[in-house]
Write a protein that binds this DNA or RNA. Structure first.
Lengths: 342, 342
DNA sequence: TATTTTTACACAACCGATTGCAATTATTGT
DNA sequence: ACAATAATTGCAATCGGTTGTGTAAAAATA
């Protein structure tokens, strides 16, 4: 149990009779240091087990090479894939990732944002909490020139980078797919959230698709959920199956909801897809597990993570204060599987 | 677009005509500072939008209140729940969590460990990569008195904290359950990994359970997988169903594998659970989605995360150099669902 | 009132890497 | 051989909190 104190560049400097500045430069191949010295320093550093202190460097240079990620939770497949993408890209450029969960709480999001700022992250990637209604807590980043990228659940009217899918089009595609499979009375689950209102967009797509195909929009078939959970999905599904006649299709803006509908249908003796076709959203793992396999809309989580991280890194490199905070749209596709088969 | 420079305690000190030391102490309610001053300082800090620089504090105090988490991936349900548990506990005690993924690669694990050390994390929670065969890269933590907790996939013969389940007993229970449900020829999938060999333990439990119930252990029914993936599960399952007669039960040490077996069974016309009963492991979300619902063994991911984080935090508080690195065993249970019904 | 004890705050070093600038040494040209 | 230039390396300040120690003022005690 030896108490190795951390080895610093001072230790190396002493050993080699050089200045710390020389060590510092040698370690990063600065051109003013001779090759001989560089080799010597690196060798000694290696021998002594030197590991640079990120804090010191970060404090001095005011850059930490750290990307803060602020998301509702890590346990949703979409979000953990998002993280994965961020992390892979970050790792390539030698960035570290700090992850914080808001648990969809506004208060926690505010605290976490402050904590990220406190840690002087170089950039921030965020997907908004459900509860969040204003974005003042993100000003500390914008004001200090810390690149900020919102992903998926993004605020309106806030000038930052955004990486999203076109939820309107996706909703349209999903609904159109159901129509093409023969549905004429299509139900829809939705959920209200003002800021990161991707459900509204999907709903808009749903409605437009119906209109374009001359199908009447029935308010009774659009069910507003309190939360996007399995339980609420079951409730809503039961409600649908209580109707007479029941609808013949459902566009659920999430695979969990879709699965809850399929399972509720089974319980109530409704045959999927014969009597009731379902399309979900996200292409979560469960969509391929459930029987019948769930048709769904792809949601390129990992790609979105990569894109977001790349924006941060690129922005940090150029460091020019682009005022143009572009929006990156990633593509989505219909995955036609068993649950919407004719 | 105002360029607010970060507000520091120097700024506050100047404004109030006080020393930075006073500011620093006032902000943390040091007893040598008068209440009046404390209030004044806090108010001003608030007004000026002061956010402490974690780096500076960490550098000086050599403690960052950061917990490093080093795991194979964040996308497995077990691991993302583990993170969730860690994060919840950390947040309560005002710790930050840094997450890094090894992607089951030894090399990456070594790099990530170095990076965590470089970030001077206060503690480390790790679940080993599949590839990892030695633990030398963790010595930097032990040697420097940085608490290290291994979770789930833990190394043998390395004196650190460990939070695990009793894989042997869990394997025994799972197998016993199958026997109780009437199985007499029980197959088992396993996977080889030397260091964090939880599969070996589960297998050991499987074998002992068979022996205790006077059932012959047939090598032919124990299949060694290269990886714990859906694809390899399908292969192995097909292999089982090629046997004559086919086994009547399977203990799969992971729900993905179990699901792959159930789905392969369906494809090949084998009825689950009538002809073939299956029990999985982990209680992943998919276990409740698949039809028939999968019997499984609970794996208290979030609890394990919490336990691990608590160990770190407790250890950091007492800071006494406990040589006793206890092992925390968490409980597992059989969840009997449809896939093993008589 | 004089003296001791508290109370409240200031001073300054410190953590470890970075970097502008000065200084030294080596190299080149004439 | 000597100035001029280039190549190396050293010096010292800096980032922003933290903390041991010193000190002046206020309060308590004699």
């Amino acid at each position: 149990m030896e108490e190795n104190k951390h080895v610093t560049i001072y230790d190396i400097a002493e050993r080699l009779n050089l200045a710390t500045s020389t060590i510092s430069r040698a370690l990063k191949d600065h051109h003013t240091i001779s090759d001989k010295t560089i080799k010597k320093v690196k060798k000694t550093a290696e021998e002594m087990g030197f590991v640079p202190n990120t804090l010191a460097a970060g404090l001095r240079g005011n850059k930490t090479r750290t990307i803060g990620v602020l998301i509702p939770t890590v346990t949703q497949p979409f979000l953990s894939s998002l993280i994965s993408g961020i992390e892979i890209t970050a790792q390539k450029s030698d960035y570290t990732v700090i992850i914080m969960q808001s648990h969809d709480s506004y208060e926690e999001e505010v605290n976490m944002a402050k904590s990220l700022y406190s840690n002087r992250v170089s950039g921030v990637i965020c997907s908004l909490a459900m509860e969040t209604r204003d974005t003042a807590h993100f000003n500390q980043f914008s004001n200090n020139n810390i690149p900020l990228v919102f992903v998926d659940r993004v605020p309106k009217g806030y000038n930052t980078f955004r990486v999203v899918i076109d939820n309107y089009t996706a909703g349209y595609k999903a609904t159109k797919h159901l129509i093409e499979q023969g549905c004429i009375r299509i139900a829809h689950f939705t959920a209200g959230s003002e800021l990161g209102n991707l459900y509204n967009e999907r709903k808009r797509g749903y409605i437009e698709a119906l209109k374009d195909h001359n199908i009447e929009v029935e308010e009774e078939l659009i069910i507003n959920l309190n939360s996007v959970t399995y339980e609420d999905g079951v409730k809503a599904s039961n409600h649908l199956f209580d109707l007479k006649p029941i609808p013949d299709g459902l566009f659920a803006p999430g695979d969990i909801l879709a699965v809850s509908a399929v399972q509720t249908a089974k319980k109530r003796g409704v045959k999927v897809p014969e009597e009731f076709k379902v399309i979900g959203f996200n292409n979560d793992p469960i969509s391929q597990i459930i029987d019948p396999n769930l048709s769904t809309i792809t949601h390129p989580a990992e790609k979105m993570g990569k894109a977001a991280a790349e924006i941060i890194i690129k922005n940090l490199k150029s460091s020019k204060n682009d005022d143009a905070k572009e929006i990156t749209f990633l593509n989505t596709e219909v995955l036609a599987r068993e649950s919407t088969q004719k």
